[in-house]
Amino acid sequence: MKKYCMMAIALMMSVAMHAQRENWKVADKGPSIDNYFIPATSEAVCPDNEGFIRRWTLLEPIDKPNRGNTVFTDSYIKQHLGMEYFKGQFSLLPKDGQKVKVGKQKLQWHKMDSKLYNVKLFRFATGLDKKYYGIVFLATTVIECDEDIDGVRLSVGSNSASLWWLNGEETLMLSGDRRMVADDGMSKRITLKKGMNVLRGAVINGPGMSDFCVRFIDENGNPVKNIRIR
C-alpha cells in the first residue's frame, strides 16, 4: 500500500510540475516590445550614426501562409509583396493607430522608433501578441531633404525576402531565403528629392526570425545622414 501511495504522490507532483511548466510557457512570450521599440514623437529625427533609418510606421502582420522560405523567388515576391492588400496601400500615408481591413483581418498601424539599427519585426509581432510565422509585414517612413540628393543608393538587409518602393517606384527587391545582413542589397543610383520622400517596404517571413535595416549610401560609399525622418 505504501508503494502505491508513493507512486500516486509522485504522479501528482509530476502533473503539478508539468502544469507549472505549461503555464510558464504561456506566460513567456519573449522579451517585451519595449526592449526593441519606443513610440515615435511628433518631432523629426535623424538617421543614426551609421545612417540607418530607425523610425517606421509598421502594420500588424498580414496572414500569408507558405511552405517555407525557399519559395521566395523573384516572381513570387513580385506577386505576393507587390499586390495591393487594401485600398490606398500604395498612395495613402498611414497614421499611428489607423486601422485597415485585409481580408478578414483588422490590422493597426504603429509608428515607432527602433532602439536597434535593425528593425526587429519578429519582436514587433510577438510583443503585440500577433502571429509571427507565415506573414507579411508592411513598413512606411517619410524622408525629408533640404535639397535634391543625387546619385544615392537604397541599401537594405532583410530577413526574409523584401520589396521596396521610393516615391511610388519599385526600387529594390531582395528575394530568396536570406538572413538579415546590412547592405545586402543596393538599388541603382537614384535621387532623394527636395522635400518629402516616401519609402515603403514589404517583408515576408515563413518560419524563423524576421527583421530589416535600411539606409541610403552616397556616391562615395558613405551613409547619407543629412536627412530627417518623419
Rank of each mutant, 00 (worst) to 15 (best):
K3D: 09
A10V: 07
A10W: 05
M13T: 07
M13A: 12
V15E: 02
M17V: 09
H18T: 06
Q20F: 08
E22A: 01
E22G: 00
E22C: 00
W24E: 02
W24T: 00
W24I: 00
W24V: 00
W24K: 00
K25V: 02
D28R: 01
K29R: 10
K29D: 00
K29C: 00
G30A: 01
S32G: 03
D34Y: 07
D34K: 10
N35K: 09
N35F: 08
P39K: 10
P39L: 00
A40G: 04
E43F: 12
P47W: 03
P47S: 04
E50R: 13
E50H: 13
I53W: 05
R54N: 11
R54L: 11
R55N: 03
W56E: 10
I62W: 08
R67W: 15
R67Y: 15
G68K: 04
V71A: 09
D74F: 12
S75F: 09
Y76W: 15
Y76E: 06
I77C: 07
Q79A: 15
L81S: 03
G82R: 01
G82W: 05
K87M: 11
S91Q: 10
L92N: 14
L93Q: 13
K95D: 13
G97C: 03
Q98M: 13
Q98A: 12
K99T: 15
K99V: 12
V100N: 04
L107H: 04
H110L: 03
K111C: 12
M112L: 15
L116P: 03
L116I: 08
Y117N: 12
Y117H: 14
L121D: 04
L121Q: 01
F124G: 02
T126S: 07
L128G: 01
K130V: 01
K131T: 14
Y133L: 10
Y133M: 11
F137N: 10
T140L: 00
T140P: 05
T141V: 01
I143N: 03
C145P: 06
D146G: 14
D146Q: 12
E147S: 13
D148C: 07
V152D: 06
R153D: 02
L154T: 01
V156I: 11
N159Y: 05
S160E: 13
L163G: 03
N167R: 01
E169S: 13
E169R: 11
T171H: 02
M173T: 10
L174F: 05
S175Q: 14
D177Y: 11
D177F: 11
R179T: 12
D183M: 09
D184P: 05
G185N: 13
G185Y: 12
S187V: 06
K188A: 14
L192T: 06
K194R: 15
M196L: 15
N197A: 08
N197L: 08
N197I: 07
L199I: 09
P207T: 14
P207G: 12
P207K: 13
F216W: 09
F216G: 03
F216S: 07
E219S: 15
N220F: 15
N220D: 15
G221W: 10
V224D: 05
K225N: 13
I227V: 15
R228Y: 14
